[in-house]
Amino acid sequence: MARDSGVDTSRARIQSYVPTYQKQEWQAHADELDMSLSEFVRSMVQAGRRGFTADSSSIEPSTVAEGGEGEQSDADPQGQRLEDRVLSTLADGDSYEWDELVAAVTDDIEAQLDETLQDLQARDEIRYSGREGGYVKK
Rank of each mutant, 00 (worst) to 15 (best):
Q22D: 04
E25W: 09
W26N: 11
Q27M: 08
A28N: 10
H29N: 06
D31N: 14
D31H: 07
D31F: 03
D31P: 02
E32N: 15
E32T: 10
L33Y: 05
L33M: 13
D34G: 06
M35N: 00
M35C: 01
M35L: 14
S36Y: 08
S36C: 10
S36M: 06
L37A: 07
S38M: 08
S38K: 12
S43R: 01
M44W: 04
M44P: 02
V45T: 14
V45N: 09
Q46K: 02
Q46G: 03
Q46R: 03
A47K: 02
A47L: 06
A47M: 12
A47F: 04
G48P: 05
G48E: 08
R49Y: 05
G51S: 14
T53I: 09
T53G: 02
T53S: 09
A54K: 14
A54I: 15
A54H: 13
S57H: 03
S57T: 04
S58C: 04
S58Y: 06
I59E: 11
I59N: 07
E60D: 08
E60G: 01
E60L: 00
P61H: 05
P61F: 00
T63H: 12
V64E: 00
V64C: 00
E66Q: 00
G67S: 04
G68V: 00
G68D: 01
G70P: 01
E71C: 00
E71K: 00
Q72N: 01
S73Q: 02
D74C: 01
A75M: 00
D76L: 04
Q78Y: 08
Q78E: 11
R81L: 03
L82F: 10
L82Y: 02
L82C: 03
E83G: 04
E83R: 09
E83D: 06
D84Q: 11
D84I: 02
D84A: 13
R85P: 01
R85E: 03
V86G: 03
L90T: 07
A91W: 06
A91M: 11
A91L: 11
D92Y: 08
D94A: 15
Y96S: 09
Y96V: 11
Y96N: 08
E97Q: 13
E97W: 11
E100L: 03
L101Q: 09
A103S: 14
A103K: 12
A103N: 14
A104F: 08
V105N: 07
V105E: 04
V105D: 04
T106R: 13
E110T: 07
A111Q: 14
Q112W: 07
L113V: 12
D114M: 08
E115A: 15
T116C: 12
T116P: 05
L117Y: 13
L117S: 09
L117P: 10
L117H: 13
Q118H: 13
Q118A: 14
Q118F: 10
D119M: 04
D119L: 06
L120W: 13
L120K: 15
Q121M: 12
R123T: 13
D124F: 07
